[in-house]
Amino acid sequence: MQRNGPEGGEILQRTKKIGAKEHLVVVLSIAKYELLISNIRYPLRVVSRFLGPLVWVVPFLLFGKAILGGSTSETLYELTGISHMPTFILVGTIITLVSFNMLWLMAFAIRLESFRGTFESIYACPVSKFDFFLGKLVASTIWSSFYIIGLLVLGVMFLDVQLAWSRAPDAIIIMILLFFAMFGFGLILAGTILVYKESHTILHFVDGLFSLIVPMAYPLEVLPIAIQKISLSLPMTQAVLAARNVLIRDESLLMQGTSIAILSCYIFILIPLGYVFYNYMERKAKKRGVLHKY
């Protein structure tokens, strides 16, 4: 006998519960699809992806060089205890770039499929949307690893950037925390874009706003107090501060208690919240009939 749901539609037979291994297969398949198929199909994207980080970071360095006439700043030293401008900027921009990249790929995930004409197929797949998003995040992390290596090589070879390399494992732990903290953030943005569309505008704006308030190319101290407080509540800011302390000041990870606590809060609070929010926005999109619309 046919059973009806609360909105009158037929309740479909549930698919069988899948285990962790199957979830992993889905996540990796999505990551592979995002990394290989969508890039190889459009070769210009590969060029853009490799050169993009460079043209993003270099203007900050050149502007710094133009106003300093060199690479050290007394004002920066008074504010942060770090005088070498390229080292300060490079660590900040790498962390910010990685977090933006994660945010972009996750939040734009749905919209991109919609443009590619593959949204309906993916939506109808009997897999969790969260595996889908996680797959996108994994792809973004793999891309980001290339960025990090490339920019660090550039910094060491051409900019005399000197980092506490023995602290690299501490920095990797910070990046892992950032990875999960951005997942909740990305879910909220993806849900918003599902209903309100115009993903480019929202994402470019969020990107621009975060570029301003995250202490990427300057310390927090130069921002107005109110903006400093907002910035300190962001996971990217905490990751930038912790990474600078670890990699430039040679501090241990254990000394980054505040940053780790805030990043952990994002992981334990924002991921469940993002999950609930995304489901709510998906229901809203279905009710309005805008799920598949442009």
Binding site: F63, A66, S73, T75, Y218
Partner: peptide, 19 residues
């Protein structure tokens, strides 16, 4: 504004002799 704040962090004002 991003460049303005970067300038403030590096030279502390909107004028720079090096510039």
């Amino acid at each position: 504004l991003t460049l303005y704040f970067q300038g403030q962090a590096l030279v502390g004002e909107t004028q720079s002799e090096a510039f």
